[in-house]
Amino acid sequence: MISVSILLIVFGTEEVFLNIPNTNSFISESIDENNSKPIVDFLNLKLNKPQINKFSDNNIGKLHQLELCKLINLKFPETLITTSLADLKKFVTVHKIVITKPIENPFSKHIVNGKDLHFFTSSKLITSNILKKYTSDRFQASLFQKYTEKKFEIRSFYLNETFKSMAIFSQQNEKTKIDYRNYDRERPNRIVPFLLPKSIEKKLIKLMKLLGLNCGSFDLIYSVNDEYVFLEVNPIGQFQWLSRNCNHNIERLIAETLTNGE
C-alpha cells in the first residue's frame, strides 16, 4: 500500500493541495522541526498559570501506572503480557478467571476496500471453552489480567487533590457486567455519588505526583472482598456523565481552577 502525504499550503485566500508521495518526507520533517516541534515543546512546559496537565501527558502508559502502584502499595489485578498461548494457559490455570484487555486504546477502525471496518469487543473473559478452540500458538503482545469479582466500580475525577467520585453498579446487568461500556440504554447502570476513603485518596494523590499529573480520571474496582483495586488513570478521561449523574458540578471546579477563582 502506498501511503501519501498531503501538504496543505495556504496562499492568501486560496488553498492549494499538493499530493506528495512518501519520498518527499524530508519536507514534512523540516516543517515539523522548525514549526511544529517548538509549539509542541511549549505546550509541554509547566506554565506559570493554572493548567490541567501538559500536552504530553495524554500519552501516559497503562503499564507505567501499574509499576508505580507497586511502589505505593496500591492493589491492582495480577497482570500478564505475553505473545505465547502456553504462557496464557498457565496464567489461566493459576488465576481461574482471566480477562483480556487492550494495552492502550480500545477502539479499532480501519478502511478496507473503501469501506469502514469496525472491530468491537474491547475486553473479553477468557473461558476454558475459548482456550480450547484457540489454535494459534503465538500472537502479538497482549495484556491479560486476573478478573476481579466486584461489588461495584468506581470512577473518580481528580483535580489538584480534590476527588469527585461515583460508584457504578454494573453487576445487576449481564450486558454490562464485564465492561460497563457495553451500555444498556434501556436500563442504564445505577450511578451514584461515592466517597473514597481517605487512605485510598492518599495513595492516589501519591500516584498522581509520581506521574506528574494534576488531573485525571481513575477507574477502580470495589471487590467482593471489600478491597479497592486500581485499574488505570486516564489523564483525559471523560467527566461529563460523572458530573451530571452525581451533580458534582465538575465543570465549575475546572472553571474556577483555571481562572484562579476570579
Partner: peptide, 21 residues
C-alpha cells in the same frame, strides 16, 4: 487466524461491522 502473530490475542474474538462509506 493465519497471521495471528501480527494481531493481539483478542483479534480472533473481535466482532466485526462493515459500513459502506
Amino acid at each position: 487466524k493465519k497471521d495471528s502473530d501480527k494481531f493481539p490475542f483478542i483479534a480472533q474474538l473481535w466482532e466485526m461491522e462493515i459500513y459502506e462509506k
